[in-house]
């Protein structure tokens, strides 16, 4: 794993990038974009923020396979969980 610490300028750049993405997501609501467009913008901004936090701060890019498994396994469980309870929700409609 690359343990090299983030420099001050790198940290500031990461913060700036996250702040810009936050503004983009917030503008989608503040400017009252059409619902579908607003949802696309909000989730694109949120996923980009998550990617930046994972890559720059949590340093997932340089982790070993075990850590990837530990990070992705619960997401797979949650997705499976969602599919399992969808029939209940459809039936109740």
């Amino acid at each position: 794993m690359d343990e090299a610490a983030l420099s001050v300028s790198d940290s500031l750049k990461t913060f700036g990038l996250l702040a810009c993405l936050l503004i983009v997501g917030v503008l989608a609501v503040a400017l009252r974009l059409p619902e579908q467009a607003a949802l696309v913008v909000i989730f694109a901004a949120a996923l980009s923020e998550a990617y930046i936090v994972g890559r720059r701060y949590m340093r997932l890019r340089s982790e070993e396979v075990l850590i990837y498994v530990l990070a992705l396994l619960p997401l797979a469980v949650v997705i499976a969980f969602a599919f399992v309870i969808v029939p209940d929700i459809v039936q109740h409609k």
Binding site: L70, L73, P74, V77, V78, F81, A82, I85, I89, K93
Partner: peptide, 27 residues
Amino acid sequence: VGMWVFLAGETTVFGGLLCVFVLLGLH
């Protein structure tokens, strides 16, 4: 590794909660 195992459990808790929130919203 211990911290990641802990975070994996936490991901399931928050993931499940948010997942139910979205599905009930759709309902």
